[in-house]
Amino acid sequence: MSDQADIIEEIMGRYPGKPEYLIFLLQDVQADCGYISPEAMNLISEHACVPITQAYSVATFYQSFRLEPKGEHEVRVCLGTACHLKGGQRIVEELERKLNISAGDTTEDMMFTLNSVNCVGACALSPVILVDGKYETNITANKIEKILKQINNEHAGYSEGGTNV
């Protein structure tokens, strides 16, 4: 925990303590810590001189902020128009079946988080998913299986009692 406190301390040093820097602070903390914990929220709201309720209002208004830790691997499915027309929704459903979670959730073993995103601008290669920020293009059910298998293989022994993919 103290590690995180140090990181947050360092981030707060980057911005003056004014409400207009609230979003910058939240973004930087999330980038370094993966999510915004209640402790982080307290420190940020104090530093930015805004009530804690307002900090939560902002953090929950914008889609990019997470208040829960995310899994080790994040799979984001693009649902831009081009991807939608080429079956993006089917890809979400296939991943939901494979990971046994709903979009927006994390597997119990904290291995995978599944999210959708409104267009990543790679429309020529639709449907597209991002696995830990890496583009996987012209996605099919077959490719999903391969990608998940590969991640699983990287975590040796993970399949015992882990997410069944």
Binding site: G80, A82, H84, C119, G121
Partner: peptide, 10 residues
């Protein structure tokens, strides 16, 4: 630029 399917400003 939030329109899905648009990336010209990008």
């Amino acid at each position: 630029e939030g329109d899905p399917g648009a990336f010209m400003d990008c």
